[in-house]
Nucleic acid binder design. Structure first.
Lengths: 336, 336
DNA sequence: CTGAAAGCGCTTACAG
DNA sequence: CTGAAAGCGCTTACAG
């Protein structure tokens, strides 16, 4: 028996299943009396429409997939939250998957989402656009890239302007008298990792700062690589007087390493983090960061999926990114 | 046309749809030649089984719902991550919803999950067990409570031992000579809010510390109430020399307020936070916390849902909670 | 081992 | 405005 079906409701209300379906889906072609009887029967029986059956008949499932690199990253958690909330308001369910920076896991998750016949996918893409991602696009499934992008893959996206934030960061440090600015870069397999590194190099050149390649540490968007990066850079014979990290997790790592080695942040060494995570405001001293707007990214991504579903044209959005100056940056000191 | 169906595969492979279905679901009653033809046809056509159709026929959807109060809370983000990963490994999809500490939103989300016919629900419950939650239980849908519990509602749960952590915290402060310990409590509508407050009161009494009711500020598990709580408590004529917050977000608030008013943490006032969030280790000074194991909670919750589905008996688990001493706690000072 | 057929719970033209 | 019927894409007894 379990939950009653539309058939049970029809029997109780004394109408056909077609009428029940129409009433429940707010089809205007129903009589007041039918509506009344159906609603009464449905609520008495605790009827719950079966979304699977409905999806099978209609073209859509009212479900979207969100595939992020890692919800534990506060930046992505904010996106996940906004997406889930926005979708819930329209009675759309959100399937959450984590790729954990692994292309293999991303493919597995995409396969799952396709099987679930989600109406669209919001993804922080990984890799080169081969594998399951290509299959998904070939299927014509609406996809929106968020935060990152894949070169040569033509998908609408909502990203932030990586260049302006990094440029402002370098200019800020230059104004404070820093000449050697260390950079903990993100993985070059990601568009954000690449763009931020390019922006760093160009800003360094434009400001006439020291363009020593040794000042760039290649990280991977994980906390541990932030630690390793700060360690490697601060251990240089001619150590930088300022450090910039290319994402929030690596920023955590950099802060941790500075703390562990007793370096006074904002004093011995200036630090600029990425993403305006709440806790960066609480660290002592509060961290100067390059800020984006993940909530807005999430909301926009959902809106774009909706437009794609409605067959309306969508254009990619690039959100501003700006520098929030706090106490972790200060005048340059002599390097060690 | 869109994606091919099992029917298309059957035609191409030259067998019946029944055979295709059996091969694809690894039914042993299939010949090697059938398997070969079916796999070849399926992969050539890029066949993707339709999970909706499959779910409709079978009793299950291979989908679970996770309804948390807020993924933006790092503690819950960790749970969400573990649940999604564990589920994905078994090809189970995870529907994520946020209740945002609102019973109304919880009900809306539960209705959605029931309609989606999830196989089970992992929930951080809210309210008194009425509303949609009762309906869900009446349906016999497997439900596991995580972190919190609702009195009088008999549902297996995985929680942490609120008492031992709080007790250890108070004892630690007593040993450091603190006599007046402020407590920013969680909402009394939640089991965790209640249990932690009771544990605080009993520990204060047991240690013979000042049991002044003015030392308890009633918060609501949001950052702002942590700020307000710290402010109210530190503004007391006879201000406490130590503060304990009953969850991570309120801990953020307490730290923020201390920072804003220039109080030296661990020196002027000792602070003990809740949940061992990464960033609490990075705050300067690092925060002494009452730690749980959210990853384990998430993994256990999934295992419990699985057992419920398999009809096996499950017993609730209470995980240990322990004090991690760091530099935010120190000897008591004269109160202001 | 294999196929024809019924059925999961809905929606939706098609008649009336 | 309403109902009978077909069908969405699978799975699964039932025969063979």
């Amino acid at each position: 028996m379990s939950t009653p079906t539309i058939r049970d409701v029809a029997a109780r209300a004394g109408v056909s299943v077609a009428t029940v379906s129409r009433v429940l889906s707010e089809d205007p072609r129903t009589s007041a009396s039918a509506r009344e009887k159906v609603f009464a029967a449905a609520s008495e029986m605790g009827f719950r429409p079966n979304a699977q059956a409905r999806s099978l008949r209609r073209t859509r499932t009212d479900t979207i997939g969100v595939l992020l690199s890692d919800v534990r990253n506060p930046f992505f958690a904010e996106i996940a939250h906004t997406v889930a909330q926005t979708a819930l308001e329209s009675d759309i369910a959100t399937l959450l998957c984590n790729a954990d920076e692994s292309t293999e896991q991303q493919d597995h998750a995409l396969d799952l989402l396709v099987s679930q016949r989600v109406d669209g996918i919001i993804v922080t893409p990984q890799g080169d656009g081969s594998g399951s991602l290509r299959d998904v696009l070939k299927l014509g499934l609406p996809v929106v890239f968020v935060d990152r992008v894949i070169d040569g893959v033509d998908v609408p996206s909502v990203t932030s302007d990586n260049r302006s934030g990094v440029t402002a960061a370098v200019e800020h440090l230059a104004a404070l008298g820093h000449r050697r600015v260390g950079f903990v870069a993100g993985p070059q397999e990601t568009s954000t990792g690449r763009e931020r590194l390019v922006a760093y190099r160009e800003a360094i050149a434009a400001a006439g700062l020291d363009a020593d390649p040794a000042l760039v540490y290649q990280g991977d968007f994980r906390v541990a690589s932030g630690v390793a990066g700060a360690r490697a850079l601060l251990d240089l014979d001619d150590a930088p007087t300022a450090l910039v990290a290319a994402d929030s997790l690596m920023t955590f790592g950099v802060l941790q390493e500075c703390q562990d080695r007793g370096v006074r942040i904002g004093d011995d060494v200036s630090v600029i983090g990425y993403d305006d995570i709440d806790s960066f405001r609480l660290v002592n001293p509060p961290v100067t960061v390059i800020a984006h707007d993940p909530a807005r990214m999430g909301a926009l991504a959902v809106a774009m999926i909706r437009d794609l579903l409605a067959g309306e044209p969508v254009t990619s959005a690039v959100l501003a990114s700006n520098l929030v100056e706090r106490a972790s940056t200060g005048p340059a000191r002599r390097s060690a």
